[in-house]
Design a protein around this nucleic acid. Structure first.
Lengths: 173, 173
DNA sequence: CGCAATCAGTTGTTGCGTCAACCAATGCGG
DNA sequence: CCGCATTGGTTGACGCAACAACTGATTGCG
């Protein structure tokens, strides 16, 4: 019973344990704040942001699913709930009648506009304010290297980032 | 309507987007491999590892919940399933008859012993092999700084790390 | 032109996590 | 001691995500 597994060295294990803890705690922290202050999960917030950032504030379900790392069934359920809450609207795509387009409503825009400041504040308080500028750069590079493995097609960090943290006034105006 | 929110600078946004993508994808990747190869979620694997690493391979439910970042109800459900599968056993604590102790069985030890190499391989393939030694150190520091905010009591990265990635032979032998 | 294969999305079922309620044991102040 | 709040843990109900199955539209190919 030879064991050729390359077990983790202490430095590797230490870094890994912390990364796992981080990945475990971060989603909960984001969800908790957004759910408390805006009644949105972080996923819903990201989806609304992605739609709002799209040209004409409209996006195909499939593309939205890809950008938010959701399965199509999941997105369909979420969209249904968001539509019932009046935050988005769905209508068949004229060009391809199989497809469905989702648009964010005024109410949806208003909601994310209200939610954004608090969310950004949470991001700063929990992450960004803890890091020096050079660490921010290191994090960018490190996460990029890992994402190249986890997300080879770069479906997430797409060009117009769906978790954009800028003001949304330009779309509201 | 003055807006004193400090919106994210481009470098901040870029790093943040990647970190979020990482936190979103990593759990899924870990779960997928462990579920496929050992029929365990990453959480269950971590819980079994934590018990296995404890003195006399026994741990109180409350402490286990704290170390694995689980609520007590969640852990109770998970423990019930693991017990039904014969991987752990629960028995009332002699000293405090409110408390419950969980012990890992031989079958449980055998399972994590089998699962560990594949898991470590996944960790290397997805994360560690993508990073240079200095990046590993940077990651350790950065994650530590963030965890100081997210997990002030350091309930997760406790001394005998529950997600330990070392061989488990010493407990099996 | 017609049929098969594929694509886009929705719907139903199952499993897991959270929340609230509950029971039992402990311990602490009177 | 006794009463009552607190701690440790389990249970049940509800909500959300994953998977599978299905409908309808489109493409491709003979």
């Amino acid at each position: 019973m030879t064991d050729d597994t390359r077990w983790l060295a202490p430095e590797e294990s230490a870094a890994w344990v912390r990364l796992v803890a981080l990945a475990e705690l971060l989603p909960g922290a984001l969800d908790a704040q957004l759910l408390r202050d805006a009644g949105l999960t972080h996923f819903e917030y990201g989806a609304l942001m992605a739609i709002a950032a799209a040209p004409s504030r409209t996006m195909r379900m499939t593309e939205l699913a890809s950008r938010t790392n959701a399965t199509l069934p999941r997105l369909s359920h979420v969209a249904k709930r968001l539509e019932e809450r009046g935050l988005i609207e769905r209508f068949p795509c004229p060009e391809d009648r199989r497809a469905t387009n989702a648009t964010i409503t005024r109410a949806g825009l208003a909601l994310i506009s209200e939610a954004a400041p608090g969310h950004v504040e949470t991001v700063r308080a929990n992450v960004l304010d803890a890091l020096a500028p050079e660490q921010l750069e290191q994090l960018y590079v490190i996460a990029g290297a890992v994402l190249a493995r986890l997300d080879p097609d770069a479906r997430l960090s797409a060009t117009s980032c769906q978790f954009s943290e800028g003001p949304v006034d330009h779309v509201v105006a």
